[in-house]
Nucleic acid binder design. Structure first.
Lengths: 343, 343
DNA sequence: CCGATTCTTTGAATCGTTTCATTGTTACGA
DNA sequence: TCGTAACAATGAAACGATTCAAAGAATCGG
């Protein structure tokens, strides 16, 4: 009902000047204990809550950071978001979250909104070509950090994950447990991530003389596409089968697993060792717990905030591109012979 | 670099008064075409962007709505959020999203933040007991709509889904395809959702004379817990087996399915028909596509925004509790005999 | 007890918009 | 040509916090 109390109301109620109330809020040391108590009591009695709009109007900038992701439903981004929020909270900022849903229009709307809100900076996993808008933002003193996308260090800071290294890790692991006839299952190689992971796998295979890598192009990156690839494998004669399969993501791997376990002709990991990518929640609770490559999402989110803080502090345009290396998670689907026996 | 342009800069550049610029922005009809053109050009040349802080300071309230969910990673909430954002955008508001992660502390922080931001209203799926804070907010003219929680209509508006009806739907469906010995698999019945779904199922079973419902209490709501329940079933002799199983959520159902398909002694749906709850993405791509109960998440999000709008418009405290009925999604895991033969 | 020093408190000015009463302009019928 | 109405444009005041120079109070050494 009643309009909320302002700092002036508090000042009147506590019989001090508005400046004193402000000092209690922002520089408690400057105020004597007696007046501080009186002011705090007044704040309590009136239920005063700072008006952030007024504060940031005066300050010229907000205490918020904009974050635009491609899909909040994707566990990868969910985790990045949470880490970013926590890191921002530590330095006293809040995160405004926008979900572009891979739509350039929504993305653009969020950039507009955040600009009107005068965010301190922007973290973005871009959809369309936003370089022009980002340049514009930077000119106006709003730095940007690209997330999950490698950027030209001359222009932006960025945090990303080395997919080539991830592919190498996965293939190397299959080779390490003694597999030699490897297969890669992955969607169109026009997707950068898929291409990089494949490239890394090829690099690992090239290091081992008698190893080979066959590429099974899957239509998409879904469980269904994986099941298709699995069915295709199961139809082959024993001599033509791979003994290690690396899938470009976990959904594909789960599909392959479904297909093989349903048909019952091939065992995982004894006949075919299987590894995915992303380490989604379902990987651990698959029929055969799935080995995978985990991306350091928390580090991504945290580092993105840190890079932004760096840009905000030094007014010199020094950018950094931080590239993280993913991590191998071994589960039963690639258990070596000894582990398989133990289980 | 340069401080961003203000409305005053635009006014100088276009050689008009500040009020005129404001009118161009907010009431274009009040301004003649000639001046409008001049002003718009100036805006363009200076790259002027409205300062939302100043605007809302003057207006006394923001154009944003706070939304606090229990877990953005949960597809249920992800979908609610997206629908709410779209509905809010239609009425010219933006949504500030907070993820409490089932943590009362985080929840409280977000309420503080949103209060400082002077959000128009709040949508919340509460963790702790926040009634006191919400009452406080309401007194200050910030209405609240509870999401996924039935509220006392005397105090709040709310949107929720009828879990009892969902349980009824699921059990009724199993009965409709001729199953009579039903089993319910679900975590501790202290969780309201679980208890309601069970209650609905019992109601359906009571309607059919020769039908029975057995309750298997699972430790949790995970795939693993489901697998445990499945293993337990598979160990029984034929006479003691249910012919229809209803799981309190899809993860449990997928676990049951994994167990049964691995052991190969019982077929789905021929021997045991299986239905879950939530209709998660994985339901459709399970080994046997899983029947499930889908919650109308888009309607939830959209309606929550609409109820909030109602409260904002009429200053009289009229609240409404909208309860949605979930929907049955039939897939192969409960296909009747004819469908099973066809497949 | 005085002057110097440190510690507290004051309150006007400021941020960038919107609002609105007022003034200026144009058009039109008599 | 004048009065009136309709239309355009003006600019000061207000929103609520922070800042900061200046005034006032307290403390201390001599």
């Amino acid at each position: 009902m009643s309009r909320s109390a302002s700092i002036k109301d508090v000042a009147n109620h506590a019989r001090v000047a508005v400046g004193t109330v402000s000092n209690v809020l922002n520089y408690p040391d400057r105020v004597s204990q007696r007046t501080k108590d009186r002011v705090l009591q007044a704040i309590d009695e009136l239920g005063f809550v700072r008006n952030d709009a007024a504060r940031q109007l005066r300050a010229g900038h907000s205490r918020t950071i904009g974050l635009i992701v491609l899909d909040v439903g994707n566990p990868f981004f969910t985790s990045v978001v949470r880490a970013a929020e926590d890191a921002a909270a530590l330095q006293g900022s809040a995160v405004l979250l926008g979900d572009s849903g891979h739509d350039a229009g929504r993305e653009s709307n969020y950039i507009d909104l955040f600009q009107e809100q005068r965010v301190q900076g922007l973290l973005i996993s871009p959809v369309g070509d936003v370089t022009e808008r980002l340049d514009q933002l930077r000119e106006r003193g709003v730095p940007t950090v690209l997330v999950d996308r490698l950027a030209d260090e001359a222009k932006y800071s960025s945090v990303s994950v080395d997919d080539d290294a991830g592919g190498y890790l996965a293939a190397r692991h299959l080779l390490d447990i003694g597999r030699r006839r490897l297969a890669f299952v992955g969607g169109p190689t026009s997707i950068r991530q898929v291409a990089d992971r494949l490239q890394g796998a090829q690099r690992a295979v090239a290091e081992v003389p008698d190893a080979s890598l066959e590429v099974l192009d899957s239509a998409g990156q879904t469980v269904l596409a994986g099941r298709g690839a699995g069915d295709q494998l199961a139809r082959r004669s024993a001599g033509e089968l791979p003994d290690g399969v690396f899938c470009a993501n976990d959904l594909l791997a789960l599909g392959v697993m479904q297909s093989l376990t349903m048909l019952r002709t091939l065992r995982i990991p004894e006949d075919i060792a299987l590894i995915g990518y992303d380490d989604i929640d379902f990987a651990v609770s698959a029929v055969v717990p799935l080995s995978s490559i985990r991306q350091p999402t928390e580090a991504l989110g945290r580092t993105a905030i840190e890079l932004l803080a760096e840009e905000l502090e030094s007014d010199k345009p020094t950018h950094r591109a931080v590239i993280f290396t993913p991590e191998l998670v071994v589960r039963q689907s690639t258990a070596g012979p000894q582990a398989a026996n133990a289980a």
